[in-house]
Write a protein that binds this DNA or RNA. Structure first.
Lengths: 202, 202, 202, 202
DNA sequence: GATTAATCGAGACGGTACGTCGCGTCTTTCG
DNA sequence: CGAAAGACGCGACGTACCGTCTCGATTAATC
């Protein structure tokens, strides 16, 4: 019931059609020509929009790309099947699927984007807020459910666990992308994490 | 008498000072401004060298960056203290040290380096061959010793374990660099990996 | 009861404050930045008025400039001291004074004004009608009085004489403004004109 | 024999073809579309030259226009017929002819250019140096010859005389361009100047 | 010792993209 | 209806970068 969302600035409101047209065109161009060949002039042409209209919304090509490829408006659906492992798998598949959808199946070319994001402290921070943080929140919830259901030890450190899973996710995305899609990756990671590496285990 | 010395082309030989000056300047610029803002004109200026002199040596900005960042000549020393955890820690410290040495001690700007590596497919591949692969070999050896000494379960999958450790290493380097130096990070990762997350454990 | 008041269109009447604010701001901006750098956006900002409010009154930047610079309401007082030279001097001082009054006393920036006038064909024409023409009429009267009083030869061509005086007036205003204020300028012009340049004269 | 002209800066020298192509294209475009519609992009296209190549030579559209229309490289040929009046006429015809040639006969559109020049103090100064000053030098020489030949009084002030002629030249160019071409203008100016306006003359 | 061939610095060049500004119009909401 | 606010299409501006090129000046190895 808290309706403090629409302060309604004076003046002509920004066209939502423009927003959509720009983002749609941006994604098309990225898929067609790649991130490196992506140009704002071409984008304006394709979106049927003037350059100032783009720059009113995004201050920089970089910011636009981050939004277009990313992850900003991506709504995270936290799966809840009752099985923590299954939930985790579905969450990761969601992320992979999103990547594939955006990049037209060529996950291998994701690294260009990632590099662009990492390079600027600002982009990195924005990425952290818009993508990383909600994912970690989702992870955390799944882990907590896993603890309650007994699949995960009560005293396992959640943050460290998330670091391990997310980290290896990105790492494998970069260095062995072809193994990511098969689903084997998560299987093995989970098994190792579940059992632990300690000898006493058996 | 097969002389390894190249056929010695006629004409003025290339200045070796130029090579060094270019690479040094390139590394400085990457650290100062990031890969995305890196420009060949600025490089020429900083290195006190003309652009053709650069392009005579590297055909492309990308090739140059690959070499400048490149870990081609990096040698890996595999620690052997008898304690797998300690070995692992030392190996990771070696990696951090290499970063620091190469780029002047500021781990906080590690993301610029990583971005530089990721940015070019070529660079990424070379990095994989010259840096990642030997490190993984070192990891593998440490893990195997750990298995023999009883610190690590025999049936823990080595590659997956390496993925987890290396992955979270880079991940944390990017998103929580301040926690990396303290050493806490490895401690917690190790503990979680050792115990596993499975409930049955206790 | 035929009321001269206009039909009183329905709706909110136009703000007269706006008219004044716009014209005043326009003159300020012309003096500060020159005609070429004059922009409608800056004008709206400076006048505290929205752009449509300006365009409701003037259809075009050019029309507005014409009005802002415009000497529409200028009234000419023809001096009559009995001495044609003195009259002429007073008329010229009147013109200088008008410039000063309208644009804040800085004759040095007269060239900005003149540029403004010349810039638009429309403005130039209006200036010609409202300012130049009455001044020429005044000149003509003074000259004719000069002829009657014997200061000026009967057969000197009036229009050519006016061209010479007015022309060099503007010319010197542009290229040697500092000599204008001293009064020397008119003195020398008059002397030369009086004596003529022909050798036979002496 | 003083050959201190060619300091020969290092680096690739600027292409003289480019200089010519740019100026030629600029004049074409001005004649075809007018000064207002003149654009640097179109110029680059027409001249077969890149924009930076233009901006290396002229810092601003304004400067380029000043050079293209003007007057910079205009070599002043000082006529010498033995008759000062004739010389003067020829000099002025030279100036008018140059205008006509550059503007394709439409002298009336010269005022746009002049306004542009006048507006910026810098342009005005450049114009003064490159166009005004050499013309005044030419005037001065003609006047001095006229004095020697007896056509002009010895004690007539040269600068004032030049002010009068040049001033009325520009004035008539602006306010009665159609009367300029006929040649009547100079005739009348000269007669008035020769005889003077003083009554004692007869 | 002269010639030759590759190098060097400096910097101009074509092409292409960037991000900004200006004009005149359009679209809101508030008086 | 007018006004303030501001977004919009169009198009130009001046700058940065890349990789190539053209100069004159070095600098060895070869003749």
């Amino acid at each position: 019931m808290s309706s403090d969302i629409p302060p309604r600035r004076p003046g002509r409101p920004r066209s939502e059609q423009a927003d959509e047209a720009i983002l749609r065109a941006a994604r098309e161009l990225i898929l067609e020509f790649g991130v490196q060949s992506f140009s704002m002039d071409m984008l304006a042409l394709r979106a049927g929009v003037s350059k100032p209209t783009i720059y009113r919304r995004w201050g920089t090509k970089e910011e636009l790309l981050t939004d277009a490829i990313g992850y900003a408006s991506e709504q995270t659906v936290i799966p809840d099947t009752g099985d923590a492992l299954l939930d985790l798998r579905q969450l990761l598949e969601q992320m992979l699927g999103s990547l594939e959808e955006r990049f037209g199946g060529k996950i291998a070319s994701a690294h260009k984007m990632i590099a662009g994001i990492i390079d600027s402290q600002q982009s990195l921070q924005q990425y952290e807020e818009n993508f990383i943080r909600p994912r970690r929140k989702a992870y955390r919830e799944i882990i907590q459910r896993g603890k309650r259901s007994g699949q995960i030890r009560e005293d396992a450190d959640e943050e460290t666990l998330i670091d391990l899973v997310s980290g290896s996710y990105f790492y494998c995305l970069l260095f062995k992308p072809q193994e990511m899609t098969s689903g084997q990756w998560l299987q093995q990671v989970w098994r190792l994490l579940e059992d632990g590496i300690g000898k006493l285990r058996t």
